[in-house]
């Protein structure tokens, strides 16, 4: 035994020794701080340079200065708040009611064979219909006012939430449910304490999809017969060829989207803090 050890030692001293090549790198996404703000600033600088040098024609894209000015005008006139509050109100009502309905029906589909047989084919049939196509119908059913706009968002949010919820419940660890049964927990306890929390991660990631659908439908719905709302503002700017205002409106929409995704991120961190 000791012989062979000394043997190898003498061998290494005479032969070429080099480190084992490392092959385990890559495929791991790290964080690169500060790069993302640089991308934004860089794009805006390029845009600014393009507009001032004449490389980008003002008809094609207004300069960042003009767009900022349009935004400041909008804010100073007090209309910004009116548009944003009208939009946010529709978004909150439509998304919340769509989500509550979606989670309830999703849970029903996941937990009862009767509900699954009833609703699952319906959901599958109506899900792929673009809700914007139904907007004229909603105007007739719910009126040209808030009703039709909220209904469009509600329907748009409802279907993906149903799918996310019942998929999530189907994927809850069966052994946890069996554990609940083995301790004699009631049906409602198993649903509230085991199934719902177990499904929550997937339901919350469904929220990201449903929230972006809600914003898209919000703008589409506001393009029909809305006095206030960011969608109405963008539509008006577009039809007047006021591209600077259009850009300002789009920026507000983008900020709205970022805020929503930030809020969902916060909710995930709070509700899923038990995860690593």
């Amino acid at each position: 035994m000791s012989d062979s050890i000394t043997h190898t030692q003498t061998n290494t001293s005479t032969r070429l020794a080099r480190p084992v090549p490392f092959r385990g790198g890559g495929f791991r996404i790290g964080t690169v701080p500060w790069l993302s703000p640089f991308v934004f600033v860089g794009l805006i600088l390029f845009w600014y340079w393009g507009s001032s040098s004449g490389f980008i024609h003002p008809l094609v894209l207004p300069s960042p200065g003009e767009s900022l000015q349009a935004f400041i005008n909008l804010a100073q006139s007090g209309m910004l708040w009116k548009h944003v509050s009208a939009s946010v109100q529709r978004l909150v009502i439509g998304w919340t009611s769509g989500t509550i309905l979606g989670i309830s029906i999703g849970l029903a589909i996941a937990l009862s064979s009767l509900a699954r047989a009833t609703f699952a084919p319906l959901v599958a049939a109506i899900m792929p219909v673009p809700k914007i196509a139904l907007l004229p119908l909603f105007v007739i059913w719910f009126g040209i006012g808030e009703g039709s706009k909220v209904a469009t968002i509600l329907f748009g949010v409802f279907f993906p939430t149903v799918i996310a919820t019942y998929g999530a419940v189907d994927n809850v660890d069966r052994s946890l449910i069996r554990m609940g049964q083995s301790f004699g927990l009631s049906w409602s306890s198993i649903v509230r304490k085991i199934i719902f929390p177990g499904a929550l991660p997937a339901i919350l990631s469904g929220f990201r999809i449903s929230a972006s659908i809600a914003i898209i439908l919000l703008v589409a719905a506001e393009m029909i017969g809305a006095e206030f709302g960011i969608g109405a503002y963008v539509l008006l700017a577009g039809s007047l060829m006021a591209t600077d205002q259009l850009i300002a409106g789009v920026a507000v929409l983008s900020l709205l989207g970022l805020t929503v995704s930030f809020l969902i991120g916060r909710a995930e961190r709070y509700f899923l803090r038990w995860r690593t």
Partner: peptide
Amino acid sequence: LNPLTYIFQDFALLPWR
């Protein structure tokens, strides 16, 4: 409270509790 009580191979603990 629960005459026949299991202990499972995979522990079956609720990760959120």
